[in-house]
Structures are given as structure tokens and as C-alpha cells.
Design a protein around this nucleic acid. Structure first.
Lengths: 360, 360
DNA sequence: GCAAAAATTTGAATCGATCCAACGAAAGTG
DNA sequence: CACTTTCGTTGGATCGATTCAAATTTTTGC
């Protein structure tokens, strides 16, 4: 009998059950979707037929077409799929999204691809009611691709100022100010910035010109925040080195080498991500530079790792999970509007920042 | 014009394009799915019509029904969705699954739910070609639910000996032996086991009776491996305390309290998961018991955290990512067979194990 | 210039369900 | 007993595409 169900080539459809039970397909459908409206006797007969034929239940593929709603939201990025499980920031974000989805019983479909062509295809063919876009890299392209689907979508970490797309972001300027003020109030006056990218494919020391023409507004705003506040404390920001990293180990270390080769090395480092900050911590420790005794470090993002590294990192915490929750709810309760939402960040003081060494 | 596409209630279908361009739906369909077979002039005309009407491209919902294949695999568990992003073991596994999916361009749909009723519904209605089941908890039920879908599925971490389901597992007995032998060879003779669950809803010290009737075969096999090897070294396993934890902080600490309250506390702890082992490390350190000088600890699983905790953990490494990759491929290249596959584990020696203190 | 071959296009059938207006039978009402 | 309700059931329409055999048009060969 196993061979009857497993071997029988053509899968059993609802219509087969209806015929076997001697009822219309309408009634057969009702047995599964609204059992209460069909007479018990008939219901049992249909169920028995289904059982006998090894029917797997109404195929969601069929239901979907009629219902129109998938009840799942797609989360897309240009990074490989494993990014969702590797990256600390993404993980917290996904936890937030998961929470909102769990609450409404919606599913999550992860969308990504090795190359752009495949990504376009995957976005076009994703079975979802809307998208959350992780615009870490290639944001504008991802937005463009998604827009074609004409489904609701929300962009996260969108580095540009496109007012035609819904987005949830944080107040980067305020975050920058918070970080800078904290260090300035501790007494620091010699700073260096380890920055995220200002534009595609650039690294190294950054000129004011590059900052002015930055295409990634998030990076620019954080720097703006740093500089605004430092100026208030009388720091000549023109002399603060800004080194653009690729948010990875190699480029961050290169930045540190450059910065500390200076005659007047900084006593405080403003890192634009916790990842950068943690690489800095590691590099400084390897160089025998004590944190925070010799140099203070402040990160940005507030990933969980920042709380448990050595020393625990002072950082600007984004409400990462909350961003995820809101993004998911924006899709789930989509009302047809395009909105940009900006959330506040918070300074979390831990052990990586302290007063500068007394200059004797 | 925006109002025309966004305001116009009814979404545009392929048929609308066909009519507008004055071609049949067959041709309109070909323009999108096999553009090479339609004459350039016609192709352009149809594309122009699509553009003019604001057509979003062929709706995957429609395509799906015809094609039958979703090109996505579902990963299901009874844990909440956030489990996929929080749990170290799950994360590595997901990375492996992602890799296999990325390679073939398949998508991943995460399936879970707060309560059993919802879970059943979510499994029934998931748009996937097959399932990978994380049977951490409630495995048999999850398998049962999934079986109803009559789609290919693979069970991971399945704690039972059900030969009718495809599964990928590891050689738990060999793993247990490896761990025990390592410690025995270092000279340890006084052991304690911090175990995973043997059956639902049990904790505390375990009797041989409970072990014999264990419903979770994974737990039982690990213990079997431990005991087999310890016996070979002349240890009286009847005297080795086995404390069943819930793989969490509280129950593990309770276990440690119990174990170390003994007149002859162990010099070596066999932990059935890295999570348990790491809690043990923390507890021992808080108690001023040095690892590995006073007590050695060996974990199980080989999660990444085990390499960076203090001290780094000696453990039995499962090929976690490989399990994920294989599971995904089993679904992607499904051949209709039911197979159980068992992978080997490996002893990874780090700093948490060493010779026992000399008894003077 | 005409028949045969090749290239395109057509339109009906199909995928697997749900929805709903209409209908028949049983139950209730005066 | 005729007449309205109520309850359950029916079967056609629909969701949005793809497929394929047949019809049509265009090319090619001579």
C-alpha cells in the first residue's frame, strides 16, 4: 500500500478525493478549509476517501494562487545567504524580524544570490508578500530590482537619501555626536576616525572633498556628528585623520598602522562599527597599547559581541532588534504609504573608554 | 501616472499585456520566459505594452502552480524562529545549508511557530519542495507533521531510531568514546557526566534504568560511548554520576552543585554539549576551581564559541556545516529513497583538558 | 513563382485549489 | 398545505501563469 501512495506517479488532487467520495469539489474543499459547514456524515466520508487515497491535504500552491497572499516576508541582501547567520548585526536584526513574524504566524524567506543576474531572478520569483532589504552593499541596485516586483518593501541600512523608498534608519548624526562628546568630556583632544566607506571602492585616508561628495550618507552623517561635537570642544577637525576601511580586519589594521605612524598618535579612536572597533582592540592589545589607559575606543552599532570582548566596548547602540521588528511590521501591516522612519541611538559606556593618559 | 499603476486596484496580469499588445497570451508569456523564440518586433511591442501598463513581470504565484517546483527548501523546528539566529549550533548548520542552496540558487524558508497548532498549519502551508527538520525537541511530532505533506524531508538531530525517515546524524557512540578515552589517557579516573535529556521532562541524577529506557537515542549513545571506553580503563561506571540537564544554565549549574557536593568530586567532566561545557567552565571559574589544573572539561558539538571561550574547550567536533550541506543536497537532489547517514566526529584538543591533579 | 521547410503565433488545456451564486431538500411557520 | 427560512451542496468562474499541438506566416530552394 505504501507503493500505492509513493509509487503512484501523479499526486492526488482534491478533485480525486471529491470524485472518490462522490461529492463536488466545492464540498471537498470545504471539508478541509471550513469543515464546520459540511454535514458530519459527508465530512467523514470525504476524510475517509482522502485517507484511503493518501491525500496530502490541500496543496498550498493551489491555495496560494486563489488567496493571493503568501503570508511570508522576504529578506534580501546582496551578500551570500550565510551572511544572515554569520554577521552579528544581521543576526540581531533577524531575531527582531523573526519575533514580529512569529507573532503573526508569518514565514521568512531568505533571498540572496551569488551574482547579480541570479539575484534579480531570485527577487523576481520569491514567493513573498513584501521585502525587507539589507542594503549593506549595492543598496541602490537592490532597491531598483525590488521595486520592479511592485510589492511593499522597506530598506534598512540604506546609505542614500532616496525619498521614494520606505526605509528605517537611525539618527547617525546624533550617534556620532554622542560618541564624540563622550570622549571629549573624558578629556580627549587627539582623535582618529576609523570610518566605513564613503563611496564604492575607496579606502585609505579621506579628504574633506571625499566626505562632501560621499554617496553613503550613513557614513557621512556619522562623521558629521563626530566633527560637529569635536568642534564644540575646540578640536581642529581638519587635523583629525579619517581612515576609510572596508569594515574588515585587513583594511582596519592598515588604517591603524597609518594612524599610529603619526608623530602625534591619537588618544581616542572613533570607530564607525563595532567590528572595526573590535579589530582595533585586538590590534592595540597586540601592540602593547593598553585600552583605555593609553587609548580609548568607541564603536558603533551595539552588537552583542561588543559586550563580551576584551575590554568590553563602549559603543553607540542601535536598537537593532527594534529596527527588525518595525521593518517586519511595516510589511505585515502594509498601508500603501512610503515612509522613512528614524530611530534614536544610545551611548553605552563600557570599559574601552576612559580619560586620556596624563601628558605629564 | 503613478496613480494609474499604484492606485489602479486590480494588478496587471499577463493577459492584459497580451491584449494591449495585440498578441495571444502564449506569445506574451514567451516574451518573458523564452524571449529568444519570439520575433524581435513582437517582443519589443509586448515589452513596451508591459512598460506602459506598469506590469511587474510574470507573477511567481501563477508560474508556481504550473511549474510545480518552488525551488526553495523549508527548515523547520519547534523552537521559535529566532533560534536559527541565536543558537550557535543552528547557525553553523544554517550556514552549511545556505551554502548548498546558494550553489543551486534555491531559497530557504524558515518554518516555526509558537504553538503546535500553528506549527502544523505552517508546515502544511509552507511553499517549499522539501523540509529539513531540526529535531532538537519534539522531534517525533515534527516528523509526523511533516510526513503528512508527502514531500521529501531529512531529519537532523533526530533522537530516535525511526528507520522510515531519512536522517543525517553523527556517530554518537564513537564521539563519546573519543571524549572518554582522551580524558582517561590523560590519567583521569574520577568522572562525572553532565548529560542531555534521556527522555521528556526529566532532570537530575540518572539511574541505569532510565538510561536503558531512554527515548533519546543520541543522549543514550553518547553515554554508552563514554561508559564503554571508561570501562576499558578500569573505571567503575556504576559509580560515575550522570546528571541530566536541560542544556541550559540553570539545570547545568544545579548539576554541578550536586556533583561537587560529593565527598570524592570528579577530576574530569564529560559534557554532552558545548553549551553545557561552557556553563561548567564559568561555574568552575567562579568557584575558584582551575581548569584544567583541578578539573578537566570535554564538551561535545564543536560550536565556534568553544574555540574562543576561556579556556578554549576540548570537545568532540561534529561536522556541523557538512551535515547542513548534505541535508540540503538530499532535498535538492531528492531521488525518492529513504536513507540514514552517519557522519564521523573528531576530537579537538584545546586547553580545557589536561592531566588530573597529582593526588600527592 | 511555387512547394517544402522553417520559424512564429495561436488558443485551448492545465496546474490545484477557493469562492460564490444558485439550487434542492428539510425544517419551521401561519 | 402552501410558503418562507435555513442548511448543505453543486458546479462554474477564477486566481496567473505555462505548455504544446495545430495553424499560420515567413523563408528557402529550385
Amino acid at each position: 500500500m505504501a507503493s500505492l501512495t509513493e509509487g503512484g506517479r501523479r499526486p492526488i488532487r482534491l478533485a480525486d478525493i471529491a470524485k472518490a467520495a462522490g461529492v463536488s469539489h466545492g464540498t471537498a474543499s470545504n471539508v478541509f478549509s471550513r469543515p464546520e459547514i459540511v454535514r458530519e456524515e459527508v465530512r467523514e466520508r470525504v476524510k475517509a476517501a482522502a485517507e484511503a487515497l493518501g491525500y496530502a491535504g490541500p496543496d498550498p500552491k493551489g491555495r496560494l494562487l486563489r488567496a493571493g497572499k503568501v503570508n511570508a516576508i522576504g529578506v534580501a541582501t546582496t551578500e551570500p545567504l550565510s551572511y544572515f547567520f554569520d554577521d552579528p548585526f544581521a543576526r540581531v536584526m533577524m531575531a527582531g524580524i523573526s519575533e514580529a513574524c512569529d507573532a503573526t504566524g508569518a514565514g521568512i524567506a531568505l533571498v540572496s544570490a551569488g551574482n547579480e543576474e541570479k539575484l534579480a531572478w531570485n527577487i523576481q520569483s520569491a514567493l513573498v508578500d513584501g521585502f525587507i532589504l539589507f542594503c549593506i552593499e549595492g543598496g541602490p541596485r537592490l532597491v531598483e530590482l525590488t521595486r520592479e516586483r511592485k510589492l511593499p518593501f522597506v530598506a534598512l541600512e540604506l546609505g542614500s537619501q532616496d525619498d521614494t523608498v520606505s526605509a528605517i534608519s537611525i539618527d547617525n548624526v546624533a550617534g556620532g555626536r554622542l560618541a564624540a562628546r563622550h570622549l571629549a568630556e573624558l578629556g580627549h583632544r587627539r582623535f582618529a576616525v576609523l570610518s566605513l566607506a564613503f563611496a564604492d571602492d575607496s579606502t585609505g585616508l579621506v579628504s574633506p572633498e571625499q566626505v562632501r561628495t560621499a554617496s553613503y550618507t550613513g557614513t557621512r552623517d556619522r562623521l558629521l556628528g563626530y566633527f560637529e561635537e569635536l568642534s564644540r570642544f575646540g578640536v581642529d577637525t581638519a587635523k583629525v585623520p579619517v581612515y576609510e576601511t572596508e569594515n574588515d580586519k585587513a583594511s582596519t589594521k592598515a588604517g591603524l598602522e597609518t594612524i599610529f605612524a603619526s608623530a602625534e598618535p591619537p588618544t581616542a579612536i572613533l570607530a564607525m562599527s563595532d567590528r572595526i572597533a573590535m579589530v582595533a582592540l585586538e590590534w592595540l592589545s597586540a601592540r602593547g597599547i593598553a585600552v583605555p589607559r593609553d587609548v580609548s575606543v568607541v564603536g558603533f552599532d551595539g552588537v552583542p559581541e561588543a559586550a563580551i570582548c576584551e575590554p568590553p566596548l563602549t559603543t553607540i547602540a542601535q536598537p537593532i532588534a527594534e529596527i527588525g521588528r518595525r521593518a517586519a511590521r511595516r510589511i505585515l501591516d502594509f498601508d500603501g504609504t512610503v515612509r522613512r522612519e528614524t530611530l534614536d541611538v544610545e551611548l553605552v559606556v563600557r570599559a574601552s573608554s576612559g580619560p586620556p593618559p596624563s601628558t605629564g
